[in-house]
Design a protein around this nucleic acid. Structure first.
Lengths: 342, 342
DNA sequence: TATATTTGCTACATCGTTATAGCAAATATA
DNA sequence: TATATTTGCTATAACGATGTAGCAAATATA
C-alpha cells in the first residue's frame, strides 16, 4: 500500500517554473494569465493527476460550494424526487449537496442544522419536520447570513424564500371532483391542524364544502398523524356511524391506504359506495387495487425552483421583505378509487 | 441584515489574553492545559457563540470527519434503512455523512465518487449500481488510501471490506418453503445474471430445486431488470404456458408486485393456484392484497456493520489480504401470498 | 541545596489554496 | 519620443485551525 503523495498546485508550479499564484489563476481561468500558460498548466495538471483540495480553497475563499438539504424522511416518493432535482440543478452549477434526514423529529432536525453549519455549507434547503414549532434553529441559520430556502413544509412567519403548493386551493380541486362524482357526504382525514400545510388543507376542505352548499359535519372530520394505522382506525370509526360518508378525502396517502384496506376488508365497493382520494402521489397509490386518486405535488418543479431560489439568493443577498414565496400548481390524479364513470 | 463577524479561536484568545494554540489545545482537551484554563476557554467560547471552522481543522489535520455514502436509489426501503443506521453509528463517533445516489447508473456513480473525493471525505461506504462492471473508479479510491466499504452490491474481486447477505443460501430458504407448501413447479424471475448478487440467487434457486429433486426447466426462468413492468410481462408469459408454474420466486419485490397485479387481474387465486415470493421487504409488500412473502435483509444490521467496518479500517489500515467479508442472516417473511395453511 | 522533571503556556510554521499588491515588459496613446 | 495603459507574471499575506519546539515557573528527586 503505497501512501500516495498528494499533488498540489505547488507541484505544477515546480514543473513549469511558475509561481503558485499563476497556477491558481490559470486553473480558475483568470484573464490575466496568457492562453498559452493556461493550456500548459491544464496539461501538467492532467498528467500529474492533480485534484484540487476543496478544503483549502473553501477555507481561503470562504465558499464551500456545498449545500445542505434537510428532509423529513427519505422513503417518500415526494421527497426523493425533489431531492433528485435539487441535486441535478445544483451539480450543474458546481455545487455538491449534503442530504440529511430529520425523521420528523425536531431534535434530529436541530442536529441536522448543527452538522450542516459545522460543515460550512454555503446554503440550506429544507422541509420542516411536522413536530417543529420552535424556529430558533432556523433563525440561527438566517442570523449567520447563510441562504435558507424552505420547501413544502415551512412556516410563513420565517422571512425566507419558500417553494410550495397551494394546499387550500388543492382541497377545492378534490372536493369539486368528489362533488362532480355525485358525493354528498365527504369525510376528511386531516393531519396536525397546528401546521400550516394541514391547516390549509382542512380550511380548504371546509370552504369548498360550503361553496358546494354542503354542511360541515364535525363527526366526519379527524386529526391524526396520517399513518396507515391512523387511516385504518378512523375508517373503522366512520363505518360505524349511522350515516356513513360516501367519500373520504385523506390529507395523506398512507392514511388513504389504511382506509382502503379497511374498505376492502369490509367488502365495500370503492368508489361505488365510498370514494377515496389521498394526497402526495406516493408510488404505492397506483399499485393497489383500486388505484387511489391522489394529488401530485409536482415534485421535480419544486426541487428545481428551490435550487434556483438558493442560487438566486447567493447572488442577491436578502433585503428586508424581499423574500420570494413561490406557489406552484398541483395536479389531481383521478384514478379508480374516485372515478365512477369508468 | 448585519453581516455577522465569524468568531475564531483568535477572538477567544484575545478575550483571555492567551495564545491561539492554548485555545486550540484547551478545546481539544489537551493534557498540557490546566483545568482552570480549559473551563475559562469553554466559558468564553460559549459566550461568544464560537463555532469551530471545520474547513480549517480538516485542512490542517488532514481529517475531514466526513464519510461519503453511495446508494443506487433512494426510494427503496432497504437502502433508506441501511442509511439511517450508518448515519446513527457514525454520528456517534463524530462523523457526518454525505449521501449520494447513483440512480443505478454507472456514469452517475463515477460522478458521485468524484464529488466525494473532491469533498475530501475520510472514507466511502457504497453499494454498487447494477450496471457497474468497470471497477476503475473504485480502484481509484483504494489507490488514494481512503477506506472503502461495500455493502449489499459489491464485486468480490475488489479487495475491500464487505457486508452483505448470502443470496445463495436465501434462495434455498425460499425454495424449501415453497416445496413445503406443496409447490412442484417453481418459476424464477431473476435479475441481471452478470452481477454477483443475482447470479447467486439464480444458482441457489437451481441447486435448491435439485436438492428437492425437482427438474430445472429453463422455460420458467427469466432475466430482467425486475421492474414492475418486467414482472407483469414475464407473469403474462408464464400464464400462457401449457403447463403453468404453481409458484413464482421473484428476485425483487417490484417484479413480484407486477406479477401479483397480473395474477389478480386474471382472477388467479394466490397462493392457492400460484404462490408468490419476492425479495427485499419493500414496504408495499405488506400493503397489497394478498401481502407478498419476501426476504428481509436485516438492513439495520447491514448499516451498523458497514459503519463499524469503516471505523475499524480508519484505525487499522488495510494489510494485504486482511479485508473482512461479513455475511449476515436473512429472514424469510412468510405472508399470505405463499401461505396455504392459514 | 542542586538538579531533573513536569506543567502550562507562547511563538511560529504549516495545511493548500486564493486575494492583493506590485513590478517589469509589451503595447498603446499622445 | 515620452508617457500611459495593458499584459503576464511574482511575492507575500492571508483563511482558521493544529502541531512542534521551546521556555519559564512549579514541582519532584537526589
Amino acid at each position: 500500500m503505497t501512501t500516495k503523495k498528494k499533488i498540489t498546485i505547488k507541484d505544477i508550479a515546480n514543473v513549469l517554473g511558475l509561481s503558485t499564484s499563476a497556477i491558481s489563476k490559470a486553473l480558475n481561468n483568470d484573464s490575466r494569465i496568457s492562453e498559452k500558460t493556461k493550456i500548459a498548466v491544464r496539461q501538467v495538471a492532467e498528467n500529474l493527476n492533480y485534484q484540487p483540495n476543496h478544503l483549502a480553497s473553501a477555507l481561503r475563499s470562504g465558499k464551500s460550494r456545498l449545500v445542505g438539504v434537510i428532509i423529513p424522511r427519505n422513503n417518500s416518493n415526494f421527497f426523493s424526487s425533489v431531492l433528485e432535482k435539487i441535486e441535478e440543478v445544483l451539480n450543474e452549477k458546481g455545487y455538491n449537496i449534503i442530504i440529511t434526514q430529520s425523521n420528523e423529529s425536531f431534535e434530529k432536525e436541530c442536529k441536522c442544522i448543527e452538522s450542516l453549519l459545522f460543515t460550512q455549507v454555503d446554503g440550506i434547503i429544507a422541509s420542516m419536520a411536522n413536530e417543529t414549532t420552535d424556529l430558533s434553529y432556523y433563525e440561527k441559520i438566517k442570523a449567520k447570513g447563510i441562504p435558507l430556502v424552505l420547501f413544502d413544509r415551512g412556516e410563513m412567519e420565517l422571512k425566507v424564500d419558500y417553494v410550495g403548493i397551494d394546499d387550500y386551493k388543492t382541497s377545492f380541486k378534490i372536493i369539486d371532483h368528489l362533488v362532480a362524482q355525485g358525493c354528498k357526504r365527504i369525510a376528511h382525514m386531516g393531519g396536525f391542524d397546528g401546521t400550516r400545510v394541514y391547516g390549509n388543507r382542512i380550511k380548504g376542505y371546509k370552504d369548498a364544502l360550503t361553496k358546494n352548499e354542503i354542511a360541515i359535519d364535525k363527526t366526519i372530520i379527524s386529526n391524526s398523524k396520517l399513518r396507515i394505522e391512523d387511516g385504518r382506525k378512523i375508517m373503522e370509526e366512520l363505518l360505524e356511524l349511522p350515516n356513513r360518508p360516501d367519500a373520504v378525502y385523506a390529507a395523506g396517502d398512507f392514511a388513504a391506504l389504511g382506509a382502503l384496506q379497511v374498505l376492502n376488508e369490509n367488502k365495500i365497493k370503492v368508489p361505488e359506495e365510498i370514494s377515496l382520494v389521498g394526497f402526495s402521489n406516493e408510488r404505492f397509490t397506483s399499485y393497489v387495487v383500486p388505484a387511489i386518486s391522489t394529488v401530485d405535488q409536482n415534485s421535480a418543479e419544486i426541487g428545481k425552483l428551490a435550487a434556483e431560489a438558493f442560487l438566486n439568493r447567493i447572488d442577491n443577498p436578502i433585503e428586508e421583505g424581499g423574500v420570494n414565496k413561490i406557489i406552484i400548481e398541483t395536479e389531481l390524479l383521478i384514478r379508480d378509487s374516485s372515478n365512477k364513470n369508468k
